[in-house]
Amino acid sequence: MARYIIRRLLQMVVTFIGATFVVYALMFANQNDPIQALAGDRPVSDNVRQVLTEQYHLNDPFVVQYGYYMRGLLTGDFGKTLTGRPIGDVMSDAWPNTIKLALLALFFATLFGIGAGLVAGLRRGSAFDNTTLALTLVVVGLPIIVLAPIAQLVFGVKLGWFPTTAGARPSLYGLILPALVLGAASTATMLRLTRASVAENVRADYVRTARAKGLSARRVVAVHVLRNSMIPVITLIGVDLGTLMAGAIITEGVFNIPGVGSKLLLGIQTEDGPLVVGFVSVLVVVFLVTNLLVDLLYAVLDPRIRYE
């Protein structure tokens, strides 16, 4: 187990360096004028040029520049945005909103996905099953750029149940509609996987054994069927995190939430290299760590799995 974790951590370091290097390269390299790129559209004076060249080690080879950047990153120094704001500050503003949004989305996805998936799996072929299955199919095919504006139109503008935009300091209530939109695709996939998994497990021999013991139907489902059906569903949470992060770019944009997604998009559009690389680095770490945790959780849930 320890060996497995160490190997995974080493692989994660490689992946992290690879991913951040690529993004760093995309944001900084191959620019006709890196300093102009750093400064965005503003004119640059020779003096500023001098400062920036030193600050970003622009006279050194590219890989060395990346090395300096990484060293800063590892000591917690994300640098400054093009507008001169410390990126650490931007992050501490943006992350809480996105974490709230993502957790809320994940909460809805697990609640509805597993709940409805369980019922559908237990009653295969029923009206409930067929309806949810058709619904999930539509939701899986529904791009978030379609879902977000339409949900905003229907539930925000027309029905007025939720605020249309979340605003600078989004309340939990204001985040509900965006979270439902963001978690929709995850809900659908989770529902389908839970349903398939439950449908397979209710026919399993050990479920028959559990019934033969005279356990109550509730206990058979809750302890034996559900527990075993959750094993594949857990893996999905790791994969979903990537989808959620990507979806957050659109959702936060549409609902005007000042989170990681909207900051990133802004950074990319204004070619704010330091900001983008900083945010992406954190995202990659979050993604990798989540996936490692999910894999470890998998081994906890299924004792047959042995990592070495």
């Binding site: 399993a204 050990y206 054994t209 075993n228 004792p303």
Partner: peptide, 10 residues
């Protein structure tokens, strides 16, 4: 009959 599948693996 088949104790491996009749016992819950987890």
């Amino acid at each position: 009959q088949d104790a491996l599948s009749a016992l819950n693996p987890v």
